[in-house]
Structure formats: structure tokens, C-alpha cells
Amino acid sequence: MSAFFEAVGNVAFAAQILRVATPILLAALGATIASQAGCLNMGLEGIMLFAALTGVYVSSMTQNASWGAWAGLLAALAVGALLGALLAYLVLHLKTDATLAGVAINVIGSNATVFLMYVWTGSPGTSASQKSYVLPTVSIPVIRDIPVVGTVFSGQNVVTYMAFALVAALAFFLYRTPLGLRIRGVGLNPGAADSVGINVVGVKYLAYVLSGVLAAMGGAFMSMGYVSWFARDMTAGRGFIALAAQAMGRSTPVGSMLSSIFFGFTMALSNSMQSLSIPFELIEAMPYACTILALSAYAYQQTRKKKQSSGG
């Protein structure tokens, strides 16, 4: 037990939470904007994988240590936007079931990325044989010198800072701008939005594209944040955990952030506990078990609330 507290109680663990939460948070923000417009983006996982591979590939192709990683990130975001648009086309024009379309993108993402990586590197496991670049970490002056706080909040990857800044940006966008109001209007009552001349399909397209871009940033972080390679299925279900985080966060940016941090905590915990003598598989399963528990608790509370309001 003391080993457990040693693993959890130190400052590095807190820093790790933010790092691990980053890709979940970005994908959860993607799920949030889609959900605010009344859309379901089930394809987050697949989009993250495509983005992760694209980022590594483009950054490797540049052969440039100073801006190669940035080029990779931009390319990843562009791929995310395209996949978001593809999903929107499938759902809004071809009237495919949103869940099935998303699952299709996930399955394609899981397999096509391996195929493309194999074509590129000759290896079906990782792209580590090809030199690629990582996005920089940021050391914040003043804060880095404060004990504890400095260790946690300074020296994180630039994408981590971007992710948390995007929480505020997205909240601002949704609640303070005309377009944000239209997105919420479309999500809450498309008929009402339509009756005042809002292009409902256009707004939903936009939401899917932005959702794809946010998920792609999370994917790029996976392959270019701390490592400089792509590995098959490296997102390991984070796209689905992000959906859980969005649902638990009631589709609000801040709520999604809080639940992403919670999931980050459970994943960081499972990382730290691998040094303990608990079976590896059990620890690996922990974040996912926590997802189920958290979702059940949330659903229980929601149904009880519904019962109370309808009973009274």
C-alpha cells in the first residue's frame, strides 16, 4: 500500500495526469462541439489514428527539426477536418446512421493506418524506424521556479497548453458568439433554427469539421507529443473514453475538461501502478472499468433526477 501512495503522492504524478488527459480532453472537446449541434461523432478514435499517422509521416518527410513537427501537426489537423467532413457527408447527405458511420471510420482507421505505415516503413508495428520530430515542451518563466506548481504546470507539451486554452476558447465560442448561439440552437431545436432562416445542415457540417480537427489534435499529440513514432492502435480507445467524458461533462467544455482530467487520473494511476505487484492486465483495464463505473453513476443520477421531476 505504501508503494501505492508513493506512486500517487508525488508531484510527477500530478504532472502526468495533465499529460495523459490531453488527448482525451481534445477528443472530448470534439465530441462536445458535435453534440452541441445535435450531432454524434462516433468516429473520434479513427480520426485520432489517421491524424497520429499523418503527423508522424509529414514531419518525417520534412527532414526539418525546427518546423517539421509543426508541419506534421497542421497536416494532421487538415486530415481531421477532411474526415469530419466525410462523416458529415455520410450522415447529413447520405443519411447513414451516425453510429454506424462513426464505427466504420474507426475500423478503417485502425486497419488503414497499419497498412499505410507498412507501405511507408515496412513494419506493421511501429514507425520508429523513420526519424520524426516531437512538438516542443514549454517552460514557463516564473512559474517554473515555484516549487511543486512549477513541476506540474511548467514544462508540459505545447499541445497540452493548447488543449486547456481551447476549453476556454470553445466555451467562449459556444456561449458568446452568434455562430455559437446558432450551433446551440440547431442542436436543441433544429426546427426552430430552420424557421428563422438558419442553415441547419451547414451548421452541422461545421460542427463535424471542427470536431474532426479537435480529435485530430489529440491524435497528433499521441504520436508527436512525447514519442516521435506511430504505433498500431496507439490511441487505445481514447476516442471512446472521450465520448464518455463528453457525456459525463454534459456536453459543456468545462464539464468535458473535468471528466477528462478524471479519466487522465485513472490512466496515470494505471501507469504508476505497473511497478506494483498487481497483474498487468488488471491495471491496464482500470481506466476502462472506471469509465463504465463513472457512466453508470452518472446515468443513475440522471434517471433519478428525471423520476423526481416527473413525479413532482
Partner: peptide, 11 residues
């Protein structure tokens, strides 16, 4: 009514 219940009157 073509109104969004969760938004304010002014919105």
C-alpha cells in the same frame, strides 16, 4: 412553437 426551450427569451 418554434422556440428553443433551453435558451433565454432574448436569445
Amino acid at each position: 412553437f418554434m422556440l428553443v426551450d433551453r435558451l433565454t427569451v432574448a436569445e
